[in-house]
Amino acid sequence: MSLFEIKNLNVYYGAHHALKDVNMNIEANTITALIGPSGCGKSTFLRCLDRMNDLIPGVKVEGSVMFEGKDIYKDEDTLELRHRVGMVFQKANPFPMSIYDNVLYGVRLHYKLTKDEASRIVEESLKKASLWNEVKDRLKKSALGLSGGQQQRLCIARTLAVNPSVVLMDEPTSALDPISTRSIEDLMRELKKDYTIVIVTHNMAEAARISDRTAFFYIDERKRGFLVEEGATSEVFFSPKDKRTEDYIQGRFS
């Protein structure tokens, strides 16, 4: 059984059919990259995996999204889902609190911690996010004082602190400089050992560098996004099954 099994997924924003008939499986401990031109539904698809789409007024989701064998849209409780499936956003969004409190935010929602447990979790999460050394002496200072790349890694640490199985990333490096981007990519390779990662990216080179599997989305004449093909990254990039994939990767489209 795959970690995620998505069958006949259709998403509507009001009258607009944003995502059409997506069928895909996502395996545990892989990095899956979602690529495609703007507006093709990659982010919509990503947000279905932790039901963040629910927050958009007028949204309708049809089909089934099975996570660990259970349809997440049949269950009312989204809190537990978001505990297991975390998300890192395009623009880093640290809370206006200390670094320490930021990391622990998600954990404290669900558990009462002792001081020791708290410090341990903070240290572990920041280490996993490759941020520990840079901030270990100023944990109680405001998170807003960090650089862009550091803030994004903090958001990753915050997401990891609740110990999810999956980390969803929506263009996590698009707002960062090349050096921060590389460090986050290295981070992702490390994380793959313990987590499943699904990342939306506009950066083809990044997708090729770090992902095991790639899903290529495209947009049809009626402005609906759909999945063109999905497979091992090396295949999708070097011997794609679909001509549209080939064209896109060759850089004929934006």
Binding site: L109, H110, K112
Partner: peptide
């Protein structure tokens, strides 16, 4: 010790 708060949260 850790204590699960989900019922309380709800």
């Amino acid at each position: 010790m850790k204590k699960d708060r989900s019922k309380l949260n709800r």
